[in-house]
C-alpha cells in the first residue's frame, strides 16, 4: 500500500508534490469559479494522520499496538495522541489515517453504545457487532464518495471468543490472526505472521507483548512517520485494558559503522 495517506484512493501523480509535502498548499485563485462548487464537498484528504496499527491473537485474547504520533504531513505535530480506544466492555479499536475522522467515529460509536445501553434489552454490543457497524459506516461513506479516511483494526473478546478484523475507507473488511495497517502491513506483518500463525493458542501475554514491541521497534527504525512512544491494548476475558504510553529502547550505535549514516570524515 502507498504509505502516504494523502495518496490513498487516488491515482499516482509523481509530477506533483513529489516530496509529499501535504497538505496541498492553497494559493489565491482568481480564475473562473463554479458558483455552486462549494455547495457539495465530496472528496477530502487526510490532514492529521496516524501511522500503522498492529494486532495479533494470543492465548488469552487479542493484543494491539499503536504509537502516539499524529503527523501533519511530514511534521510530527501531536506526540501524545491515543490511537487505541476501548468501545464498550469487549472491544478495542486501533485507528490509522485521519485523526479527525477517527474522533468523529469515536463520538459516533459513543452515541451508538449509549443508545444500545438505554434500550436495556439485555444485549451488549460485542466486537463482531461493532466491526459490522463500523464497516457499514465506512462503506456507506465511500458509496457517497465522501469517505472517512481511515484504516481500523477491531479487536475483541466476548463469550470466550476472540475477534480480530480490519475495515478501511473503501469498506473493505477481512480477518486474520495477525494484522497490520499502513506501513506495518509491509514491514511488520511478515514478522507478525511468522511469530503468530499456528501458535495463536500457545502464545502467552509476555510473548505476545515481546513480539509487538519488536515490531514497533522495527517500524520506528524504518517508518519516518512513526514515534518511539506507543501503547499496547489487551482484550481478554477480563475486558479491554489500554496501557500507559511506553518508550521504545532503541540503539543507534550501528550507524557509526555505516558510511553516510553517522558522522564521518571521508
Amino acid at each position: 500500500m502507498d504509505h502516504f495517506p494523502t495518496n490513498w484512493g487516488r491515482p499516482r501523480n509523481d509530477a506533483y508534490d513529489s516530496y509529499g509535502t501535504y497538505p496541498i498548499p492553497h494559493r489565491p485563485y482568481n480564475g473562473p469559479k463554479d458558483a455552486f462548487g462549494e455547495g457539495v464537498q465530496r472528496t477530502q484528504q487526510p490532514i492529521v494522520t496516524g501511522t500503522s496499527v498492529l494486532a495479533i491473537k494470543y492465548k488469552d485474547g487479542i493484543m494491539m499496538a499503536a504509537d502516539n504520533l499524529a503527523s501533519y504531513g511530514s511534521l510530527a505535530r501531536f506526540k501524545d495522541v491515543q490511537r487505541l480506544t476501548a468501545v464498550g466492555e469487549f472491544t478495542v479499536i486501533g485507528a490509522s489515517g485521519d485523526m479527525s475522522d477517527f474522533q468523529y467515529i469515536q463520538s459516533m460509536l459513543d452515541d451508538k453504545m449509549v443508545e444500545e445501553f438505554t434500550s436495556q434489552d439485555g444485549h451488549a454490543l460485542g466486537p463482531a457487532e461493532i466491526h459490522e457497524y463500523l464497516s457499514f459506516i465506512m462503506y456507506g461513506r465511500r458509496t457517497k464518495m465522501d469517505p472517512l479516511w481511515n484504516s481500523f483494526l477491531v479487536g475483541g473478546f466476548k463469550e470466550g471468543q476472540r475477534f480480530l478484523a480490519y475495515v478501511d475507507l473503501l469498506g473493505t473488511t477481512y480477518s486474520a490472526s495477525a494484522m497490520a495497517t499502513g506501513y506495518g502491513a509491509h514491514i511488520a506483518l511478515p514478522l507478525l505472521r511468522t511469530a503468530v500463525e499456528g501458535k495463536e493458542n500457545l502464545l502467552t501475554e509476555e510473548q505476545a507483548q515481546k513480539i509487538l514491541e519488536e515490531c514497533m521497534k522495527v517500524l520506528f527504525y524504518r517508518d519516518a512517520r512513526s514515534l518511539n512512544k506507543y501503547q499496547i491494548a489487551t482484550i481478554t476475558a477480563a475486558g479491554p485494558s489500554i496501557s500507559e504510553s511506553r518508550e521504545l529502547a532503541t540503539s543507534w550505535s550501528f550507524a557509526e559503522g555505516i558510511r553516510g549514516y553517522g558522522a564521518q570524515t571521508q
Binding site: P11, N13, R27, Y29, G31, M145
Partner: peptide, 17 residues
Amino acid sequence: PDMDSLVNPQQRQFNPY
C-alpha cells in the same frame, strides 16, 4: 510542479474501487 497545477484547483478524485 508547474504554476498552473498549483494555482488552479486540483481535481484529484477519490477512487471508490
